[in-house]
Nucleic acid binder design. Structure first.
Length: 939
RNA sequence: GCCGAAGUGGCGGAAUGGCAGACGCGUCGGAUUCAAAAUCCGAUACCCGCAAGGGUGUGUGGGUUCAAGUCCCUCCUUCGGCACCA
């Protein structure tokens, strides 16, 4: 079995030779230049400049106890290369780093060990900072921020209060101060409390009863991230949903703008599509179905069931209705005979996790309420059921069931023997159940004969005329559940007024800016209470507050981890400002972020939440752009080294991989468990479709790279790579592996490959003969040969173009080719090697600085102008061109570059092999494209 | 099931519709060395051929084109996301 240390031992270059010889030795070069940059404040970024700005941002990490993962430096290297490149191109570059440091692991660790989360967090940050610094990134460390720093979360809390102080004006399509919310006369008439309640109903931050993930076994509420497939991530205990008063953020008010403003952004289409799907806009109608026998206790508004449908055209086919089990009307309309059954069903579905409820293979279930509604189109009585295939949280929590045109309704109708009426004519050969396609309406009164789109228009007009419903847009996006029953997060800066008995009156008082930051109380016991109440409730002294003779309790929920990362890109612009979150003028200069790089796991939530906050800040006048991140790139995942796995049965026979389920290692048919046997490269060979055992070629072997994980033991530690090969090799390898966005497997041999390249660069310039490092005698102040000159200019062009297109792997290839060329030259022009050093500088900055110094320069090359190529020097005198006959290459000819089509044709015809292939044929067509090829079509 | 991305040598990968496999790894041969490591030079898709050369090749099947890895259609596989959203 191959393990990590074996890999290092096997592939490591002998360190003794590098220490003794004046060879490339990153272990001494790299600390030297890192110290230089720090001492000279080389990458300190002044707030303003006359130069064009470039704000290049990494998704800042959560500093986990495990230290940096090789996945982190992938994105960081890409952005660092671009930051350094842009500086050399004359841009004023903002390139900061910080820590997303609130979160669960520190709290879990505290529960286990008693260590304060702030301590472990600082320790982890120190490790991350050291590791990141060891890679030589050009961050302006003066701008470092930490979301758990009170000077930072003061403003996170301030933004929360801004959200609390904002309502969404649908007319103006923007968030406005709550003081500007128009209060209806009728509300005002009922007094201050009614006005306050009305305002609370409209705030972007509001409270509601919302279901949370309650884990009875752990005695705690879990965040969604902690729930995997309906079980707790830790311990694998069942999780149920229970309602609890929660803070919510009204992100749904911004759904349309979040969708619309996505369009012009320079993001990958994939990410945009994921966001669009998440927002999930659909157009349709809201329709009111009157109850057939409304209970006398209900008001007129209450005695109708509102539904949302995207297919109002199928209204005539609505043969029953379904309410979500949690729908408030259920208890009001259920008849006495059905009470028991309905209550039992409600309780059963409450116990189910989301996963169980959405389990697709299960049969549809439901219970009849005993009540009926009137289909407004057919005027017939239709039964009202409850079923958990209808979600309380989408639309109105109720549907009109149209089994003829909806597969889910069809399945339900079949189970409970409910009527099915087709109201869209399916095609003649239709054999399916519900028909969702287009077709003429049937059995639909005045809609008959109309196709779907037209029928929708007609029925909506009819509904609106008759006051039965209206056009409506619905979003899948839900409001953001913002509170966590946790310790290690930002406290929510609100006070709840309590009466003499200590009960909350419902009145809420926000803290003033002067009272911020509201710090966490120091606690010994972070353990969840065993009840679904936040641990902060146990800090009695902290919770109880008295002011102006009134008693208050602090809010004990904390903010989710997303909060701190929602606006950090803004704080980097003005990280030490203690008067406001960010100076308006600085913000105007730096925003938007020109390039944002990070993992695809944040494709939806983080980016959506940050965009939402940004838009609120925009509406309230604190930022000047509608969007925070102009260009977004997601780096791909780095997998472990390729592994070969064979499967062996209990009896010791090899089992071919195609018969085995790769995840469980069990037989696909018999489910017999097999043993996994790791193989070395020497034990396998490629056989047509896959790898097989060398000794037993009939046995297929599983060959793939896996996600890095502690359990699998395939985690690569960046410290070890930097220690062995240096930061420059680490950086270069991460970029050379393949396209930034691609998922790719790690290879230690690949690291060694780029390390050898850096050694070649060193030897191109440095003498190997002398005892101490010395410039090679081959470096001379001479003009380059035309071929070398052309090579240099071509390389400048390739590297520049590739950097602009973020194709780091091919840029490195280009530099390798130039290095290989220069290596062969007995005399290497100083100008040529100097250009190579400058091109290499963003990628391998330590080596480049060292060589730059050896070449006789006094100062850092960080702000040297980027090399420029002369397009006139890219062309060769003679070029090789291919000659095709009927699409096949039959010859290659050297021709002067300026040859025109006619000259090319003549040159091609002169070639022996061409003549051979043309013998006895007639040329029907000749295509000669200068710089491309010459092609003859013959018959 | 739906949406998205991707399938190219032994491996990572490269190719504005114009010479498939750049560059790197690995492997083989050679130089250097007492020997090894490191380094340097050469070869390396597959098949036939001593060679010149020829044939076949970018997941599958079809199409467009003088010319397709690249464009269009079909299917298959892998990865990522969403998933009873009415």
């Amino acid at each position: 079995m191959l393990n990590r240390s074996d890999l290092f031992v096997t592939y490591r270059l002998d360190p003794r030779s590098s220490a003794a010889m004046p060879a490339y030795h990153p272990q001494s070069i790299e600390p030297k230049w890192q110290k230089y940059w720090e001492d000279h404040q080389t990458f300190r970024t002044p707030d303003r400049s006359d130069r064009p700005k470039f704000y290049i941002l990494d998704m800042f990490p959560y500093p986990s106890g495990a230290g940096l993962h090789v996945g982190h430096p992938e994105g960081y290297t890409a952005t660092d290369i671009l930051a350094r490149y842009r500086r050399m191109k004359g841009f004023h570059v903002l390139h900061p780093m910080g820590w997303d440091a609130f979160g669960l692991p520190a709290e879990q660790y505290a529960i286990q060990t008693g260590a304060h989360p702030a301590e472990t967090t600082q320790k982890n940050i120190d490790t991350f900072r050291r590791q990141i610094k060891s890679l030589g990134f050009s961050y302006d460390w003066e701008r470092e921020i930490d979301t758990t720093d009170p000077r930072y979360f003061k403003w996170t809390q301030w933004i929360f209060l801004l959200l609390y102080d904002t309502w969404y004006d649908v007319e103006q399509k923007k968030g406005r101060p709550i003081a500007e919310l128009p209060i209806p006369e009728e509300v005002r008439g009922r007094g201050d409390a009614a006005v306050a309640a009305f305002q609370d109903l409209h705030r972007l931050a509001y409270q509601t009863e919302a279901p949370v993930n309650w884990c009875p076994a752990l005695g705690t509420v879990l965040a969604n991230e902690e729930v995997i497939d309906g079980k707790s991530e830790r311990g694998n205990h069942p999780v149920v949903r229970m309602p609890l008063k929660q803070w919510m953020l009204r992100i749904t008010a911004y759904a349309e703008r979040l969708l619309h403003d996505l369009e012009p952004l320079d993001w990958s289409e994939a990410i945009k599509e994921m966001q669009r799907n998440w927002i999930g806009r659909s157009e349709g109608a809201e329709i009111r179905f009157a109850l057939a026998h409304p209970p006398a206790t209900l008001s007129e508004a209450e005695s109708a069931i509102r539904v949302f449908t995207t297919r109002p055209d199928t209204l005539f086919g609505a043969t029953y209705m379904v309410l979500a089990p949690e729908h408030p009307l259920v208890s009001l309309i259920t008849t006495s005979e059905q009470q028991a059954a309905v209550r039992a069903y409600q309780e059963a579905s409450a116990r189910k996790s989301d996963l169980e409820r959405t389990d697709l293979i299960k049969k549809k279930t439901g219970v009849f309420t005993g009540a009926f509604a009137i289909n407004p189109a057919t005027k017939t009585k239709i039964p009202i059921w409850i079923a958990d295939y209808v979600l309380a949280s989408y639309g109105t929590g109720a549907i009109m069931a149209v089994p003829g045109q909806d597969q889910r309704d069809w399945e339900f109708a079949v189970v409970y023997n409910l009527p099915i009426v087709r109201t869209v004519q399916p095609p003649k050969d239709w054999t399916g159940e519900a028909y969702l396609g287009d077709g003429p309406a049937i059995e639909s009164g005045f809609l008959n004969g109309l196709y779907v789109a037209e029928a929708k228009q007609q029925i909506i007009a009819w509904l609106e005329e008759n006051g039965l419903g209206q056009r409506r847009v619905q979003y899948k996006l839900r409001d953001w559940l913002f509170s966590r029953q946790r310790y290690w997060g930002e406290p929510i800066p609100l006070l709840h007024e309590v009466d003499d008995q200590g009960r909350r009156t419902g009145r809420i008082v926000p803290l003033s800016v002067e009272e911020l930051p509201l710090r966490l109380p120091d606690m010994k016991d972070y353990k969840p209470s065993g009840q679904p109440e936040p641990p902060l409730g146990k800090a009695v002294d902290w919770v109880h507050v008295e002011r102006h003779g009134k008693r208050y309790q602090r809010e004990t929920n904390t903010m989710p981890q997303w909060a701190g990362s929602c606006w950090y890109y803004l704080r980097f612009i003005d990280p030490r400002n203690d008067r406001m979150l960010c100076d308006p003028e600085k913000q105007r200069y730096w925003l938007p972020v020109d390039l944002y790089v990070g993992g695809a796991e944040h494709a939806v939530l983080h980016l959506l939440y940050a965009r939402f906050w940004h838009k609120v800040l925009f509406d309230r006048g604190y930022v000047s752009t509608a969007e925070p991140f102009q260009k977004l790139v997601n780096q791909g995942m780095i997998l472990g080294e390729m592994e070969f796995t064979a499967f062996r049965s209990k009896k010791g026979h090899w089992v071919s991989a195609e018969r085995v389920d790769a995840d469980s290692a069990a037989d696909k048919d018999t489910e017999e468990p097999y043993e996994r046997v790791k193989l070395s490269e020497e034990q396998v060979e490629k056989h047509s479709e896959g790898f097989v055992l060398k000794d037993e070629p009939g046995v297929r072997v599983d060959a793939r790279a896996y996600k890095m994980s502690k359990a699998r033991g395939n985690v690569i530690n960046p410290d070890q790579v930097v220690g062995e090969y240096g930061a420059d090799s680490m950086r270069l390898y991460e970029m050379f592996m393949g396209p930034l966005e691609a998922t790719k497997p790690w290879s230690m041999r690949g690291v060694e490959g780029v390390f050898r390249f850096l050694n070649r660069v060193w030897r191109v310039m440095m003498s190997e003969e002398s005892e101490t490092p010395k410039l090679a005698d081959a470096i001379q102040d001479v003009a380059p040969e035309p071929e070398t000159e052309r090579f240099v200019h071509l390389t400048i062009k390739r590297v520049t173009d590739d950097l602009d297109g973020m194709r780091f792997n091919t840029a490195i290839s280009a530099m390798m080719e130039l290095t290989n060329h220069l290596t062969k030259l007995p005399v290497r022009p100083r100008s040529a090697v100097q250009t190579l050093v400058l091109l290499l500088a963003p990628f391998a900055p330590h080596l480049a600085e060292e060589l730059w110094e050896r070449l006789g320069h006094q100062a850092t090359l960080a702000y040297e102008p980027w090399p420029v190529f002369d397009p006139g020097k890219l062309k060769a005198d003679q070029i090789e061109m291919a000659v095709q006959i009927n699409g096949k290459v039959r010859a290659r000819i050297m021709v002067p570059a300026e040859h025109d089509a006619e000259q090319l044709t003549q040159a091609a015809l002169a070639h022996v092999n061409v003549q051979e292939h043309l013998k006895g044929k007639t040329i029907k067509k000749t295509i000669a494209v200068p710089n491309k090829l010459i092609s003859f079509v013959v018959a």
